[in-house]
């Protein structure tokens, strides 16, 4: 057991970091915001923590804390800028945001180390610290998945207009989602930079966006557990697929396609609906449609307007 742990320490750490990265995409998705800005925050956090550690040799929690606060503020400001955008337009704008951060890092000169990135961010961050942060985050998110908070989040995602008429501040909820997403992404990026002691602009690319999205889609987009399942799968799958040789990326892509078609709610959603089926309730019954009774209505209207009594014609 100890031997396995030590042999796989990198993968174990990566699982938790990927978990946080996935959450930074999932939190906005849960309120119906299709944003990849969390991946940009990952870059912001990684650079902030690395710069603080290299230049000022601050303790890990200060470097990470500063990175989280900085990215949360950027996330909030970003939400104000993109307030009018929705759906795919918003997704595009956030992709642009991520890639701009990568370009800025490449051209940041001495501060960001240019295309080579930064080296030697040695700190006192331990695996235990990473796990502790993840546990706290998971606990806090679990609180948003029950009771009144869950109801509000469901309402904002499914029907913003309805939410407003129920007294929920949709705009505030969305801004909050961007802020939290920024904090989570930065937390993942900062801890990754400190554990690996390096950061480079190539890390923040389109593939990181794809990874973050697929973890959430395949794990499940409604609960932190889904993000965790996705993180476990996509951290460990590559080493398990190693037996398939160079075809592993093809298998990867096929899994994504199958998930998009057959598991819109992810593995977690699949398990949950199976469980519900076992308990004898299906949620896939046909949705309620208004019955077509235009003719009846019309007759009633004509009756009423022509002053006939209800029994008159029948």
């Amino acid at each position: 057991m100890i031997g396995w742990y030590e042999a796989n320490i990198v993968l174990i750490e990566a699982t938790f970091l990927n978990f946080l990265l996935a959450l930074s995409i999932q939190v906005p998705l849960r309120v119906g915001v299709f944003s990849f800005a969390g991946v940009g925050s990952y870059g912001l956090g990684a650079y902030t923590a690395a710069i603080l550690t290299i230049r000022y040799d601050v303790p890990a929690f200060v470097a990470i804390g500063a990175a989280v606060v900085f990215a949360a503020v950027v996330g909030y400001l970003f939400s104000l800028i993109v307030a009018r955008l929705n759906g795919l337009y918003l997704a595009m704008a956030t992709i642009a945001f991520v890639l701009i951060i990568s370009v800025l890092a490449t051209n940041g000169g001495e501060l960001t180390g240019g295309a080579n990135g930064l080296y030697g961010a040695l700190s006192d961050l331990t695996t235990g610290g990473v796990v502790a942060v993840c546990v706290v985050v998971a606990f806090l998110l679990a609180l948003t998945e029950r009771g009144p908070l869950r109801r509000r989040i469901e309402a904002v995602r499914e029907d913003p207009e309805l939410s407003m008429s129920m007294g929920i501040g949709v705009v505030t909820v969305r801004q909050l989602a961007f802020t939290v997403s920024g904090a989570l992404g930065a937390c993942a990026g900062a801890m990754n930079a400190l554990l690996r002691t390096t950061v480079s602009p190539e890390e923040i690319n389109f593939h990181l966006i794809v990874l973050a999205l697929t973890m959430v889609i395949i794990g499940g987009s409604r609960s932190w557990m889904g993000a965790f399942i996705g993180a476990v799968i996509f951290t460990w799958l590559p080493s398990m697929l190693a037996t398939t040789g160079r075809w592993q990326d093809v298998v990867y892509g096929l899994i994504i396609i199958l998930a998009a078609i057959f598991m819109p709610t992810g593995l977690l959603g699949l398990v949950q609906s199976l469980y519900q089926k076992l308990r004898g309730r299906s949620r896939t019954a046909a949705p309620a449609e208004p019955p077509a009774e235009e003719a009846v209505e019309e007759r009633a209207m004509l009756q009423a307007l022509s002053g006939e009594s209800k029994e008159g014609v029948r």
Partner: peptide, 15 residues
């Protein structure tokens, strides 16, 4: 889902 499906197809072709 269409975006995700497209990304999946792109990954397969790229791989």
């Amino acid at each position: 889902q269409i975006v995700v499906g497209g990304i999946g197809a792109a990954s397969v072709l790229l791989a």
